[in-house]
Design a protein around this nucleic acid. Structure first.
Lengths: 346, 346
DNA sequence: TTGTAAGCGTTATCAT
DNA sequence: ATGATAACGCTTACAA
């Protein structure tokens, strides 16, 4: 693999045949006699021959590698997605090149440039918070690069996508709080420019409305960097807690926001849920860890990764461009804490 | 990048020069006149030329990509390490191909085969729990593949490594419990075949001894899959809790074990730390989340990733084999919970 | 200073 | 059924 590197030439030489014969034999071509095939295969094994994927790529104009862009790897939700992606990629003989946007538009552009210069066969991407202009992706897509968007998507790009049913998740979370007696429910969400964010806030509002609770704009907070910067959340929570009419519960719209919010609440010495209840999207183990009564909305992250790469490989491997753009919607799951959320007492 | 793909040939044709001139001009060779250079560079820009890394790799016999093998991506400790690796790799123009062993020896072998067949320029690996025989790695290393081991290492391989000072971390954790009045301290660690595990247990034992507390083998538990399989931890905790003399505290030797242990303890309805105190290695945010008084040993994961890839690139880029095998040891940090661990009351 | 040509390892198109 | 040969895009002796 490093110093020697057996090639088909070596096999050809050893066997006194031509390289094309070797190549064909190894690819099990019909025009090679069984005996020769046998011979070649044996020799290849003996010499421990491994085809050079670089050379193959050069010839075949495909690299069997796919690019993935997420905001952060060290984020439970995304690392679980990557896990799903990797598992399928591995099985299908593709490799995965991961890069992070760190929620920066510029970095996202750089990543894309990098990945395409690496000639990936396809791209899986979840947009950065800062990304509002998606023309770079549109251009790539129109040039023929297969793309699948996941989680943070944009309707402007004509590519398949996999998303969570954010509305539903948020609705159920909020409803759960309402059914347990909470009335003054705050919401902390991501940047309002993010697709996921609005859907979640919409679900939250809908639940309130359906139960006849007025939506109070003061209770809705947006964190532009969605918790990547902790101080953002801290500030949001602090602002909520100095309102004349404090919230009695809070719905957090992402994994990071949930943990960040909890952290702040704990730091402020507030008791959960006596002083303030909390429910949110979460893929960490906090549900079982923090308090037995804590319920969460779990996003099917692994499944999202698997779906995304399946859609991508499908697109890559079927030559002709897909006409029907598929959009998969996965359902989040309301996971009740060990003893559920206790009904509000006051 | 996909359908058209501008090559140096196109530039050459457009300018009426040879491809070698173009190539040399782009690489800023001294033998090309400034005017020609200027011309070529402008033309390249105009046509939006991007060099084909595949072709370059084939020629230069290096891919500018490095392989990473970890047990699980969706593990906070490792995803933080990968974050560190990726950050440096990105800056230096390398790409990172990640694969997971899922703690399986066979899978690790497959990963290695895959990565080397992909002709990575170097390898970063943290051994799987099941790996006791490292001859596959030795062979690769001796063949000239630059390797750096991290976290779970093996002294049998003649390669640089980056590790945490596990002994120290475990010692300090245990000491912290002792100083707060705990005496019957259990330890839950990874497989006893793992380098990190023994060092941690050794630190734990040393602390007990230094404070005149007898080591009770009954209180030491090993989880072979280190928490990847939750039931392992559950069982370990359960076994501890049915002892005639129950532990009053537990030291957990890894991130997964810490969260898993907490989860079990919460499930059993035990109060922390009144009924049982806990301290352990952790890179998740639980310290601030669970209980304000919970202290943890934080491992410098990001730094570990950065160190590892730096050592690797150093090895890759300096042609001649390194004579001095460097072994970096990073210090873990004892992070006290908001109000520290309360002194045991009983 | 620039061009020609060989070569990296493979596959594919011709012949034979 | 097999062998020469060209080609993929790029780099680099070697010529000129």
């Amino acid at each position: 693999m490093k110093f020697e590197a057996v090639t088909i030439k070596d096999i050809a030489k050893a066997l006194g045949v031509s390289t094309s014969t070797v190549s064909r034999a190894l690819r099990d071509s019909y025009e090679i006699s069984p005996e020769t095939k046998q011979m070649v295969i044996e020799c290849a094994e003996r010499l421990n021959y491994r085809p050079n994927p670089i050379a193959q790529s050069l010839k075949e104009k495909r690299t069997r590698s796919i690019g993935v862009v997420v905001c952060e790897i060290a984020n439970n939700f995304f690392s679980q997605i990557i896990n799903g992606i990797e598992s399928i990629a591995y099985d299908k003989g593709y490799n995965v090149i991961i890069s992070q946007s760190h929620e920066s538009y510029e970095r996202e552009i750089m990543d894309l440039q990098y990945l395409t210069s690496r000639s990936v066969d396809g791209l899986l991407i979840s947009l950065s918070t800062e990304t509002s202009d998606v023309s770079h992706l549109k251009a790539l897509n129109e040039k023929g690069l297969p793309i699948v968007l996941f989680d943070r998507v944009s309707s402007e790009i004509n590519a398949p996508s996999v998303v969570i049913d954010n509305f539903k998740g948020a609705y159920e979370a909020t409803e759960h709080l309402i059914l347990n007696g909470y009335r003054r429910i705050a919401a902390i969400s991501n940047s309002e420019f993010l697709s996921i964010s609005n859907e979640r806030i919409a679900g939250y509002k809908q639940a309130l409305e359906n139960y006849g609770i007025a939506v109070d704009p003061q209770l809705i907070k947006h964190c532009f960097y969605g918790g990547m910067i902790y101080s953002e959340i801290e500030e949001a929570v602090n602002e909520l807690m100095i309102l004349k009419e404090k919230p009695d519960a809070v719905f957090t719209a992402s994994d990071k926001l949930t943990t960040g919010c909890l952290k702040t609440i704990k730091r402020r010495g507030l008791r959960v849920p006596e002083e303030i209840a909390i429910i949110g999207f979460s893929n960490t183990e906090i549900a079982e860890l923090i308090e037995p009564h804590l319920s969460v909305i779990r996003q099917p992250a692994l499944e999202m990764g698997q779906s995304a790469i399946q859609l991508l490989l499908q697109q890559i491997e079927s030559k002709r461009p897909i006409t029907q753009i598929e959009k998969r919607v996965l359902s989040p799951e309301l996971i009740l804490g060990a003893s559920s959320l206790p009904r509000k007492l006051s």
